[in-house]
């Protein structure tokens, strides 16, 4: 297993700092994005930046790189969440009584 002590601190810690810089840059991008680019699609742009950050954290901080079994299980979980989203989105988009619904238009 990976209970080795052969990890060399000096050669590895630079990687952590590099990822940190990347994440900081992306966080900065998060802040300037609404005024700079894709201004009409802030929500999508923000989520894409978030996804990139998440990917970096998963791969480098959480050591998911090379973990085939765990990676596959993670993909399966995310797939399920995606399915829940898709089905609910289909349902909501085709809801035929939206016009008479109480909750879609405020009561007052």
């Amino acid at each position: 297993m990976d209970t080795n002590t052969n990890v060399n601190y000096k050669s590895e810690y630079a990687g952590y700092w590099k990822v940190l810089v990347g994440l900081l840059v992306l966080t900065a991008v998060t802040f300037v994005q609404p005024g700079m680019f894709l201004t009409d699609y802030t929500f999508a742009a923000q989520l894409i930046i978030g996804a990139i950050k998440a990917w970096m954290i998963l791969m480098y901080y959480m050591h998911l790189k090379g973990e085939k079994l765990i990676g596959a299980m993670g993909v399966f979980s995310l797939f399920l969440v995606a399915v829940f989203f898709i089905i609910v989105i289909i349902d909501v988009n085709n809801f035929q009584f939206g016009d008479v619904s109480h909750i879609t238009s405020p009561a007052k």
């Binding site: 998060t30 802040f31 994005q33 609404p34 005024g35 802030t42 929500f43 923000q46 930046i49 978030g50």
Partner: peptide, 11 residues
């Protein structure tokens, strides 16, 4: 981003 940034329309 979901809570803080979706309403950030301007600098």
């Amino acid at each position: 981003p979901y809570f803080y940034m979706i309403g950030a329309g301007d600098i």
